[in-house]
Design a protein around this nucleic acid. Sequence first.
DNA 1: TTCCAGGTATGCA
DNA 2: TGCATACCTGGA
Length: 290
Amino acid sequence: MEIIKEQTAIRLKNVDSFKPLHIFECGQAFRWSFDGYGYVGVVKDRVIRIIEEGTDIILENSNIDDFHNIWKKYFDLDRDYSLIKKQLATCDSIMKKAISFGHGIRILNQDPWETLISFIISANNNIDRIGKTIENICRVYGDKLIWQGKAYYTFPSPQILANGDMDILRKCGCGYRDKYILSTANMVAADVNRLYELRNLPYDEAFEYLLEFPGVGPKVADCVLLFSLGKSEAFPVDVWIRRIVEYLYFNGEDINSKDLKRLAMGKFGDLAGFAQQYLFYYARENNIGK
DNA sequence: TTCCAGGTATGCA
DNA sequence: TGCATACCTGGA
């Protein structure tokens, strides 16, 4: 990968496995949207636009320091995705097809706190509404950032949200999840470091800890572990994954989530999370099993 | 009007 | 443990 500094952007040449469409539409993040030029998102207190130009990737509104301090880690650029895909493709022909379809997927290293709240909101919800609800929360409780004449908002801290108002959260579109968000925010605010230190714990211990937060069940816990705490062995089982696995691997036979997860983690090992993303994107984009 | 959507909490056997 | 049921909300 070649890193080229431009006036207000960073241009990446020869990046392995980096397709914005795949990365931002594979279900791992909710705050990225295509604005006609590229995908714009807010990460920490930065607004950035990711543009695909031929084989180059442009990070608009970034300097070289931010690239090394924030974006390299966020976009998982130190990982060899070609090797991961090569290893997973040997598992079976279904996986091979899914990888070919979502070849530019990367698993982002997102903020655990934001990921925790975002996936609590995702439960029994639809993607459109999840995104709108999160934006509403940011607009009410986050800090305003202006870029190119447009307003963007940061994701509020645990302390800010812990002092939030149930009625306001309800008006943001949280629905019955308002109380889960408020309770979880209070628990995290009481010991913020603990959430971030889960990265250093074994998968099982981190999983059990996350289940203690209200509104967090096995699926949400696995999403937080995979998308923000570096646990690549996590295999979140949602309706799409269940559909595609039952349809393609088990002839449509019903499999319970626990068994499905155990089978997948056994089959794909430390690469289970990557396998999940390729399967999820393949299933949802092609409406497989529905 | 009714149903459904990236699950979870709750109650009961 | 395992299973059934209710749950905000808004768009189809």
